[in-house]
Amino acid sequence: MSIEVVSPGLCTTVQDMGRYGYQQHGVNVGGAMDTPAVQIANMLVGNQRDAAVLELTIKGPTLLFQKDMLIAICGGDFSPTINKKLVKSNRAVWVRRGSILQFSHAKQGCRAYLSVAGGWDVPIVMGSRSTNLRAGFGGLAGRMLQAGDRLGHNPQSPFSSYLAKQLEQKARDHAFSYTDWFIPSSYFAHSQERGVRVIRGDQFDDFTAESRQSFFEQAFQVSPQSDRMGYRLTGPTLALTSSLELISAAVTMGTIQVPPAGQPIILMADRQTIGGYPKIGYVATVDLPIIAQLRPGETIRFQEISLHDAQRALHERERTMNEIKLGMELTVGWR
């Protein structure tokens, strides 16, 4: 084993990029909420982008290292410390055995990700290591981490070992050390100031002109009843021109559905596979991390994007990811 959970935090789970191929069995995709943060956290420690990480929510855990390890922290800012000394995010960190990594409350964002070289080692269920909290499988025993849990990691890549050795030397007699280079926070969701981009949904035109206008012009607030399944928003009431009887069909991450009360819900990672409410829009995949990092009480605005531009932006992000990987390997001297 490699870590022991001293205190678990509010909702700390093992997640990866999600469980695909089983929605026709009613099994939701799940997976991390802020996937680019996960991919970067994994690249930083020399993993495949889709390795399993820990997802921290609002209040983070305290973890005891039982061996020397290479880790990275990305996503929201939980003021992490190792043996009470502040540790920086968005870079590779080497940690000595016996150290204690402690996360506080989220100062910025809502979720942080802790990757480890090799990836956290839990059994693969239906092709994924993600925790399905509702059905109670995947991850660590299908549940959130608890005090006393122990978690190991898979064998690390040659690149991870190379990086770990560099940082171990740099640490000398200190408890930890990290790289001088890092991924600028502009690559992460919370630094983006503009509106959340939304593609029109199937029933967009069935809403009143006033509703359509206020949807894009007014602010919505994230309600406290928001979780990994969906974000409930409060704001202007969105009304249909006439009531619709829809036949339930597939819904996806980012689907903005509007129940009869007129307050929209954005479906997130733990969404059901099928839904029947009118869909006013879909959050563009590239902007889903912004939603994932919103805390209850915070506000958002929507702005329209075409399907073409949403797909183009996704392609652009993929290019950035590849650049990060290449840049990192060059900087460390691996290539």
């Binding site: 695909y20 191929g21 089983y22 026709q24 339930s248 069909a249 597939a250």
Partner: peptide, 12 residues
Amino acid sequence: EIVPGFTTVAVY
């Protein structure tokens, strides 16, 4: 993946 519904098939 493919998700069959009552009258639809979703193709991801």
